[in-house]
């Protein structure tokens, strides 16, 4: 499958010809309609008969918006491609349109929307199209502002085409860190053609996440636990010397005995929590001392 993300940035790829082609293709229209219908189903809006206000992220030429309008809801769409928005104007999309980059955040006041949907758009955030683009930061900005713009208890359903499992995980993790609960729903996981990923996110809904279990339930003491916080007298004076009298490798004022394996593990863990995907796995070799370079 070709991936348009790899050819050019969204605002360049979806130029006038591509935008017209996209909207004129009956196949595209059918796909968009099915995806939108499914997204609305997952959105599970309360069926009280009153129209809701939805946000369509990456609304493009308003194909998904048409389906939302048919369901009787109001929508506001944002997209980065002026050509796509122009087509949306031509086909008289019922929602209001904004020219905005989701990686710069959702430019809305807090708690405005009853729900948000996005069809085949969010994976574009994983591409860095200029040196100023950092996928990790753009995902963070997008999800934190999306969270803010949703009413409490509202959902966001983002249909994505992840390039790899790692990319899907990167997007999901970014959403979780922004405060969303929920996860990835994969429709038809065994079919290469019909397989579809929906990221189902809930903003401020009743948290179902269990609390972390308390430590020491088996009667052990905190001194037995190498990870628990230790209180010790601060090491003072000069750097401690190694057994042979030489300085300990990597010793600093704060870490007189060298930083050690636990410090490395802690730093790697922190990096992972910040959303970096390139942190190597922890193995028995992690932070192990190197062999002496001197050949005897």
């Amino acid at each position: 499958m070709s991936r348009p993300e790899h050819t050019a940035p969204a605002e360049v790829f979806y130029n006038d010809t591509e935008a017209k082609k996209y909207t004129a293709s009956t196949r595209m229209m059918e796909i968009q309609e099915t995806l939108t219908k499914r997204a609305l189903e997952l959105l599970a809006l309360p069926q009280d008969g009153s129209p809701k206000l939805l946000l369509d992220i990456g609304c493009g030429s308003g194909l998904s918006g048409q389906t939302i309008s048919e369901e009787g809801h109001h929508w506001i769409g944002m997209d980065i491609s002026p050509s796509m928005l122009e087509v949306a104007q031509e086909i008289e999309a019922e929602g209001d349109l904004l020219l905005a980059d989701m990686g710069q955040g959702v430019p809305m006041r807090p708690a405005m929307f009853d729900g948000a949907i996005s069809i085949s758009a969010v994976q574009w955030l994983c591409n860095a199209d200029s040196t100023a683009h950092n996928p990790r930061l753009r995902l963070k900005q997008f999800f934190s502002t999306l969270y803010r713009s949703l009413a409490r208890g509202a959902r966001a359903i983002l249909q994505i085409y992840p390039e790899s499992m790692q990319q899907a995980e990167m997007i999901t993790m970014a959403a979780m860190r922004a405060g969303f609960s929920g996860g990835l729903v994969v429709d038809y996981p065994n079919s290469a053609r019909a397989k579809k990923h929906y990221l189902c996110l809930m903003a401020g809904a009743a948290t179902t996440a269990a609390l972390p279990a308390a430590k020491g339930l088996d009667g052990s003491d905190d001194e037995d636990d190498p990870e628990s916080v230790q209180f010790a007298e601060r090491a003072r004076g000069k750097r401690r010397k190694g057994a042979d009298g030489g300085a300990v490798a990597g010793a600093t004022k704060r870490h007189p005995d060298g930083k050690g394996r636990n410090w490395v593990l802690k730093k790697k863990d922190k990096r992972r929590k910040q959303g970096y995907m390139d942190v190597p796995e922890d193995t028995k070799y992690t932070a192990r001392k190197r062999k002496s370079k001197h050949l005897s």
């Binding site: 944002m78 980065i80 002026p82 928005l85 122009e86 104007q89 209001d96 349109l97 904004l98 020219l99 905005a100 980059d101 710069q104 955040g105 430019p107 200029s130 100023a132 900005q141």
Partner: peptide, 14 residues
């Protein structure tokens, strides 16, 4: 323009 607000920010604004 043409009913569409341009909310794109410059690189130094985000």
């Amino acid at each position: 323009n043409k009913g569409i607000p341009n909310m794109l920010l410059n690189e130094d604004e985000c």
